[in-house]
Design a protein around this nucleic acid. Structure first.
Lengths: 313, 313
DNA sequence: AGGTGTTACGACAACCGTAAGTATC
DNA sequence: GATACTTACGGTTGTCGTAACACCT
C-alpha cells in the first residue's frame, strides 16, 4: 500500500473507469491497471470490474474512506509546509536585551506584524543571562542581546550586529550640557542612570574613575560604580533624563529623535569613552532556523540598519 | 513522500537516533539515512542532526503530526479490512420470499446473530418481483426466493437451493385427513390457502382442475384458480390450517414439527402433485460478495440442509 | 468496429544491504 | 579509538510507457 496507489484507487472510483482515471492521473491505462492490481494484491479485492463499470466492493468502500483521509492529510501537510515557508503559520519566540529592546523592539514588532500578520509572536525583554537560560531550555527560539560574553560558547550561534553606539545623555537645560568637555568624574555630581552593565564595562568605568581620582594600581572590586540608578527599562531612563538633571547612558539610536528636536544632547566626554555594546542575534547552534526565525533575523538586521542610519550622519 | 518514508521518519523521531530507528525498522542504517534524505528532498529539512541527537525542525513537527495521522489511517484500514473479512463489521441486507421466510428466516437470523454478533443485519420479507427490484436498485444485497422465473436473467447470479418440497396440509381432525387418497378437485370443498404462486404453478393447477372436470383443450386464462385464500405470511397460514378445516399449500419443512406431534398431516394427493418450488439465493452478478454475504449464503445453505434433514426421512 | 481492460516486454528509477568513508566525541 | 551518520556500489524490486492481446457491445 502506497500513497500513490491509494491516489490511483480513489481517482479510479471517482472517475468510474480505468481509461478516464488514467488520463486524469496522466498515466497510461496499463500502468493504472497494474497499480490497482498491486493494491488489491495487498489489501484484497477492492473494486468490481464489470466491463466499463467500476464499483468499489464493501472492502473498497472502507478503503476509499481511509484513503481519502490519508490523501487529504498528505495535501494538507504540503500546504502546511508551504505556509510555514511563507511564514503564514508558525511561531517565533524571541527575546530582546534592554539596549536592543529600547530601539529595536518597537520597529521589529511592527514590521513582523505588518509583513507576517498570521505569525504567532511571543516577545519578551530580559537580561542576557536570563535569555541564555531560556534559549538553552528552549523556551526561546532566539534573542537579541549583548553577545560578547557568549562568543566562546560553541553551542550558541551568534549573528553579530553592528556595534551599538552608546553615549551619556542629558536634557538640553542640564548644567553639563553647556560644557565643551565632560570628564567621567564630573558625572558623579549627578544621578547617573543606565542598565545593569556587562562585567567588562563595569571594570572599565571603575578603572577610569580610579585613575581620575589620582589612584594607581589595582582597583578594589567593591569600589562604588559609576551608576547610581540601574533600570532595564530604557524608555524609563529616557523619560528620566528628559525630566530631571540626571545623566543616562543609553544607545545613541534611541535618542536620535530627542536630540534632533533639541530636547537632549550627548555629552562630549573627555577622554572619549568608546562605549560600544557588542550585540548579536543569538540562537542555538546546530538547529536549522525556521522560516519565521529567518524572517525575524532579517527584520532585526533591517531595523538595525534603519536605526544606525537615523542616528549616524 | 511515501507511507514507507513517513513511517521511517516517525520512527526516527520517536527513537531519537538513526541507529535505533533502523534496527526498530529492521532496516540497515544507510537505508534509513537515504530514506530520510529522500523525504527531505521532497518536503524540505525535517530534522536537525547534531551528532547523536535527532530533533525535528519546525517543519518536522508539522510533518510528524500529519505523518502520524496518515500512518494511523493506514493501520486502521488494514484492521478494518481484517474485521470485515471476519464479519466483525459490515452489513447484510437480505430478503426472504414467503416460503423461504417461513422456515429459513428464524434459523438464519438466529445463526447470524449467534455467530456474527457485530454484523449489522437488515432483513425483510417480500415477494420475488419486489425483491428483484430492490436488488437491482441496490437496496438489497441478496435475497432468497423463487428463482425459476429469474433463471435467464444474466445480470443476476442465482445460487440454487435444493428444491423446496411443498404439500397440502390439513389439521388431524380434518375430513380429508381420513382419506387414503385425495384429488385436487376434492380440495375445492374447503377453503384452499397458500401464497401468491408463480405463474407456472398457477397454470399447472388450472390445467389439472380443467382436466379433472372432464374438460380438454386450452384452459381459459381467467378460469378460477385453486386458491381461495392467499396470504404471504406463512405462519398465518399455518395457524389457519391448524385452527379450521382449511387446506393449505405450505412447505413440508415448515410443518415437520406439527406433523410429528400429530397436529397436522400432509394430504396424499392423487395423482401425486410434484410441487417443488425452485428456490435460490439471488444476488447481482459481477459483484464480488462481501464476507458478510458469503457468511449469509453459507448459513442459508446450512439452514436448508437442517430443515430438509428434519423433514426428510 | 470501437471501446475497455489486461498481459508482455524493455527501460528507468527507487530501494536495499554491504562496504568504505567522514565527522564527532 | 569508538560511535554515529553518510556516501559508493551492485543487485533486487517497483513503476512506467509502448505494444500486443482478450473481451464486451
Amino acid at each position: 500500500m502506497g500513497l500513490r496507489q491509494l491516489h490511483h484507487f480513489v481517482t479510479l472510483v471517482e472517475q468510474g473507469s480505468f481509461a478516464r482515471a488514467a488520463s486524469a492521473l496522466h498515466l497510461s491505462q496499463p500502468a493504472l491497471t497494474r497499480s490497482i492490481q498491486a493494491l488489491e494484491a495487498d489489501l484484497g479485492p477492492l473494486i468490481d470490474r464489470s466491463y466499463g463499470k467500476v464499483r468499489p466492493t464493501a472492502a473498497g468502500m472502507l478503503a476509499l474512506e481511509r484513503a481519502r483521509r490519508m490523501l487529504r492529510e498528505q495535501r494538507e501537510l504540503r500546504r502546511d509546509l508551504q505556509l510555514l515557508e511563507e511564514v503564514e503559520i508558525g511561531t517565533i519566540r524571541a527575546g530582546f536585551g534592554p539596549f536592543a529592546a529600547s530601539f529595536l523592539l518597537d520597529p521589529v514588532l511592527e514590521a513582523l506584524v505588518r509583513r507576517y500578520p498570521h505569525l504567532r509572536i511571543d516577545l519578551e525583554t530580559a537580561d542576557t543571562p536570563a535569555m541564555r537560560r531560556s534559549l538553552e531550555a528552549e523556551r526561546l527560539d532566539v534573542f537579541v542581546g549583548e553577545s560578547r560574553s557568549l562568543a566562546e560558547l560553541g553551542h550558541l550561534q551568534i549573528d553579530r550586529l553592528p556595534a551599538l553606539e552608546t553615549a551619556f545623555f542629558v536634557r538640553s537645560g542640564h548644567p553639563l550640557a553647556r560644557q565643551r568637555e565632560v570628564t567621567l568624574a564630573e558625572l558623579r555630581a549627578y544621578p547617573v542612570a543606565g542598565t545593569r552593565l556587562p562585567a567588562h564595562i563595569l571594570r572599565f568605568f571603575r578603572q577610569a574613575l580610579h585613575e581620575a581620582s589620582g589612584g594607581s594600581g589595582p582597583v578594589a572590586e567593591d569600589a562604588p560604580g559609576l551608576m547610581t540608578i540601574t533600570c532595564n527599562d530604557m524608555h524609563a531612563l529616557r523619560s528620566l533624563l528628559l525630566a530631571v538633571d540626571a545623566v543616562a547612558l543609553v544607545p545613541v539610536a534611541m535618542m536620535a529623535d530627542a536630540c534632533a528636536r533639541g530636547m537632549a544632547v550627548a555629552l562630549p566626554m573627555h577622554p572619549p569613552t568608546e562605549l560600544r555594546a557588542q550585540y548579536g542575534i543569538v540562537s542555538l547552534a546546530g538547529r536549522s532556523p525556521s522560516p519565521a526565525m529567518r524572517a525575524f533575523t532579517a527584520l532585526v538586521h533591517e531595523a538595525v540598519a534603519q536605526a544606525s542610519g537615523d542616528a549616524g550622519p
